[in-house]
Write a protein that binds this DNA or RNA. Structure first.
Length: 407
RNA sequence: GGGGAGAUUCCAGAGUGGCCAAAUGGGACGGACUGUAACUCCGUUAGCGUAAGCUUUCGAAGGUUCGAAUCCUUCUCUCCCCA
């Protein structure tokens, strides 16, 4: 691959380069010094579920990795105990050491869906932050002024709104930046919301006399509900470990307006293919067609081509033809349900056993609202008594729960 | 350190002694519709109960009262102003 090709590949989708020609400069530097670049990606192992939003950044890292640059994953086990204030209007609760450890492991497993983890360096920032003494800490804090820290929009917003900001949160960006000095990062990657934290790393590296890292920020993927950012706390994520059908279904539920963005950021179509699909859409093609293509492509990446086909077929049957095939029902044997009496039981009791996480009151409401069908017919009487003679029973609760109760 | 304001159901935010399981908006869920799990419209939104009704809930603990989210005391937390 020529240098020019590499550059255009690596630049695709990147939203912010700091400084402007950072990437060109770093690549030239690597060539001159005849070495590979050190690319840093930090993770705060709080919520261990990676989603397509993270994947945007990870896919970019994969490109670097394929060009044999070194990826250093920083597990922010120390900083997680502080809680990254990014995008939050509330302080995050600190985590226990064991939780952090468990989350970190889950993280690395999920990273392997996109990166070749065996070729990544994985470092824990407690390695250097955990042993830092007060003198050193204060010296680090002296590098940055309050005005600089307060430029961060989330601190600023919280301050303006009169929300609490603890001092330890103000230190977070410095600690993250300090990580960069420890691993001599050439480039730090992140979402655009990480720009501030990443640029802090650059500043700190320069303050100890080294070259500052370049910062590349990827756009933030919007959530399936169309909101600004995919994030676990907003319950609008598509998880990398979601089951194929669920992953596909969630893609189908995104607002049409988000299609171009998803096409660019989450699929692995070539730029030419993307262009072609977009122009088809512009020429008035039904957005659903493109949405399905995106869905298939995504499921393929994280599962398999077969799984993607199955998810598509499932979607066709279930939601478009409203036809339900045997295999789509979760089969449960009557004897396995802890009912009081197997001879006579109410619809409500069965539903409660099938969906134990729902309260009976709520299930009763669902039945009365006509959300439950038995053998294809709406059942609105929650006290309707059933017995073994009525088996098998196909019970559908809401849009996405399908059960078949067998003898 | 001194003074003031505040903590309400998933979130935001009304409610200042009974009509409050608590307005309204958002979210979520459900229904109808549809090309879609999009949009729009409608409904539901503490738990238990066939039902009447009962139980728990308004930062925490006590107290006043026939009766408290609402009044009093102490505590915890937050914000603002002054130093």
């Amino acid at each position: 691959m020529t240098t020019v090709d590499q550059l255009s590949l690596l630049k695709e989708n990147v939203e912010i380069f700091l400084p402007d020609h950072a990437l060109e400069e770093k690549l030239a530097l690597a060539q001159k010094e005849n070495r590979k670049l050190i690319i840093k990606l930090g993770f705060d192992p709080t919520a261990p579920d990676l989603h397509l939003g993270h994947a945007v950044v990870l896919k970019k890292l994969r490109q670097f990795q394929d060009l044999e640059h070194t990826i250093v994953i920083i597990i922010g086990d120390f900083t997680a105990r502080i809680g990254d204030p990014t995008g939050k209007n509330k302080s995050r609760p600190p985590l226990s050491a064991e939780q952090v450890q468990r989350n970190a492991q889950t993280y690395v497993n999920q990273l392997s869906k996109i990166l070749d983890v065996s070729k990544c360096q994985i470092r824990y920032n407690s390695e250097w932050l955990g042993t830092m003494d007060m003198t050193h800490t204060i010296q680090l804090l002296s590098q940055v002024t309050l005005a600089q820290i307060m430029q961060r929009t989330d601190f600023n917003n919280r301050f303006e709104k009169g929300l609490p900001i603890s001092l330890h949160e103000l230190a977070y960006p410095l600690l993250q930046g300090f990580d960069s000095t420890q691993i001599h990062a050439d480039i730090e990657m992140g979402g655009t919301d990480q720009l501030f934290n990443c640029s802090m790393g650059r500043q700190l590296q320069e303050s100890v006399g080294g070259p500052g890292q370049a910062v590349l920020c990827m756009p933030l993927l919007k959530g399936v509900d169309g909101s600004a950012k995919m994030s676990k706390s907003d319950h609008n994520i598509i998880g990398l470990t979601d089951a194929p059908q669920e992953m596909f279904g969630k893609i189908m539920s995104i607002p049409d307006a988000l299609l171009p963005e998803y096409l660019h950021l989450v699929t692995d179509f070539s730029p030419a293919q993307k262009q072609q699909l977009l122009s088809q859409l512009k020429q008035g093609e039904n957005p659903m067609v493109l949405k399905k293509k995106i869905g298939v492509n995504v499921v393929q990446q994280y599962h398999s081509a077969e799984a993607a086909e199955q998810a598509l077929a499932f979607f066709h049957n279930q939601f478009q033809n409203k036809r339900f095939e045997e295999k789509e029902f979760i089969q449960v044997s009557l004897a396995a349900l802890p009912l009081k009496s197997l001879d006579s039981f109410s619809l409500l009791e069965v539903c409660k056993e099938l969906r134990p996480e729902e309260s009976k009151t709520n299930l009763r409401r669902l039945i009365e609202a006509g959300s439950v069908t038995v053998n294809g017919e709406k059942a609105t009487d929650s006290h309707n008594l059933l017995g073994p003679e009525s088996l098998p029973l196909k019970i559908k609760i809401g849009k996405r729960s399908f059960f078949e109760v067998l003898a």
